[in-house]
């Protein structure tokens, strides 16, 4: 006891590779000898699957549904090299309140002093999507995560979600909330992708922490129910994840981002769309000429 647990939140639009990336970061950190907990904040409750051989674990809210009192230990499972896995869980789509579910689950662990008890070095919250309501903002509030990273591809919808998150961070920033560490650029395979992301982080005054390419190695590992770190420890992709984890671990100074407002965002994306169309046209011409 006594050391300060570093708490990090990673946000990203659904389907962007958020859980994959987060799980690889967690795996890389345990591999490096740290005590790590990954806390999935998504009603689907599958954030930690690849840390546990593809296996689902009962969520905090599953336990709450069944019992009048919940011992937080019942919701904590160990996976790859002892990494602690927790899933907040949540309701079926279309009913109840997923946001409240996250509030409840996070409070439960905090009240039972779990992070201190497990003597953790890192807690990594893997949070769904953009900040749609108060519940999804819980990890960026005072006293929970200090640093937030967002995962985004060069896809406009993913960037919208990132921009939304920046707005949430801005809201809480003057009230002791978390600050932005930067963007994890995912599925970046072309220079063009890279340019889009670079331009976005420049406009919003943040930084790219790492460029992660799309890779078949990741898909193969996932099919085995494993992280890339576990399934292909010597692959180039594993090296990228380790570098990313190291950067996140070493990261100390986060900032308040400057999100684009709705009009700016539209203008920005329209500008890039024009270039995109131009590139497509050129490539079509190439195909036609061939």
């Amino acid at each position: 006891m006594g050391k300060k647990t570093k708490q990090i939140a990673i946000y990203g639009k659904g389907g962007i590779g958020k859980s994959t990336t987060t799980s690889n970061i967690s795996a890389a950190l345990v591999e490096a000898g740290y005590k790590v907990m990954q806390f999935g904040c998504d009603p689907k409750a599958d954030s930690t699957n690849t840390l546990r051989g593809g296996e689902y674990i009962p969520s905090v809210l599953d336990l709450l549904r069944e019992n009048s009192r919940v011992d937080a230990h019942d919701a904590i499972f160990q996976g790859f090299r002892g990494v602690y896995c927790v899933e907040a869980g949540g309701p079926q789509p279309g009913v109840g309140c997923a946001g409240r579910g996250i509030i409840t689950a996070v409070q439960l662990l905090k009240q039972q002093d779990i992070f201190e008890e497990l003597d953790l070095d890192y807690v990594i919250f893997d949070v769904l999507g953009d900040v749609v309501c108060g519940g999804f903002a819980v990890p960026v509030r005072e006293g929970i995560a200090e640093h937030v990273f967002t995962i985004s591809s060069a896809d406009f919808m993913a960037i919208y979600a990132a921009n939304n998150l920046f707005r949430g961070i801005q809201t809480y920033s003057n009230k002791g909330g978390a600050l932005l560490g930067g963007v994890i650029a995912n599925s970046i395979n072309t220079d063009f992708h890279r340019e889009i992301i670079d331009d976005f982080v420049e406009k919003t005054q943040t930084q790219v922490v790492e460029y992660v390419p799309r890779s078949l190695t990741v898909t193969q590992a996932e099919l085995q129910g494993k992280t890339t770190i576990e399934a292909a420890p010597h692959s180039e992709q594993a090296g990228i994840y380790r570098r990313l984890a190291k950067r996140i671990a070493g990261h100390t100074e986060s900032k308040v981002p400057s999100p684009l407002d709705a009009k700016e965002l539209r203008a920005w994306s329209a500008g890039w769309a024009d270039q995109l169309i131009e590139i497509e046209r050129r490539s079509e011409r190439l195909v036609a000429n061939a």
Partner: peptide, 14 residues
């Protein structure tokens, strides 16, 4: 306010 997740602590602290 519990459901909408109002961040009461922050405003109280300020």
């Amino acid at each position: 306010t519990g459901i909408i997740g109002d961040d009461v602590e922050s405003v109280a602290t300020a």
